Amino acid sequence: MFGNLKILSITPMSFDDINETHALQENMTLSQLREVIREIYPGEDELYVIEFVVAE
């Protein structure tokens, strides 16, 4: 299934700034989220939070 998204914001953040709120959004513990991010993006310390809504 495909859809359209409206990007509201793109905010840079460091790996160290990932917190419990981000983990809850992903339904994970903070340690789980950090582990998953390290597996997907090894060695990356600059990440981005993309805020969006589904466009109609």
Rank of each mutant, 00 (worst) to 15 (best):
E39I: 07
Q25P: 00
Q32H: 12
L5H: 04
N27V: 03
E26M: 06
F52I: 02
L30G: 01
I37G: 00
V36K: 13
L47V: 09
A23P: 08
H22P: 11
R34V: 05
Q32G: 09
R38C: 06
M28G: 01
P42Q: 03
E35R: 15
V49F: 12
V54A: 08
N27E: 06
V36M: 13
N19F: 07
M13P: 00
N19A: 02
F2C: 05
S9C: 07
Y41M: 12
D16A: 11
A55G: 00
P42A: 01
V36P: 00
E44Q: 11
L33Q: 03
D17S: 15
D16V: 08
E26I: 02
I50D: 04
M13C: 11
I50E: 08
L8S: 11
H22F: 14
A55P: 00
R38A: 14
M1F: 07
E39Q: 10
T21C: 01
L30F: 05
N27G: 04
N27R: 09
G43D: 05
I10Q: 13
I7E: 10
E35I: 02
E46Y: 07
K6F: 13
Y41I: 03
E35G: 08
Q32D: 14
D17H: 10
E51I: 07
E46V: 09
V53D: 03
T11Q: 14
E44R: 12
I18W: 02
T21P: 01
Q25H: 13
M13G: 00
E35D: 05
E56T: 03
S31N: 05
G3H: 14
A23C: 07
M1Q: 05
R34W: 04
I7W: 06
I18P: 05
D17M: 09
L33M: 05
T29E: 06
I10D: 10
E26L: 11
N4G: 00
R34K: 15
E20T: 10
N27D: 09
G43I: 04
L30V: 11
E56S: 06
I10E: 15
L33N: 02
S31T: 11
Y48C: 15
S9Y: 06
Q32T: 13
M1V: 10
I40M: 07
D16M: 09
V54D: 03
G3D: 07
R38L: 08
G3E: 10
Q32L: 09
E44S: 03
R34L: 11
N4I: 15
N4K: 08
A23R: 01
T29W: 08
D17E: 14
T11P: 03
D16P: 00
E26T: 03
E35W: 05
F52M: 14
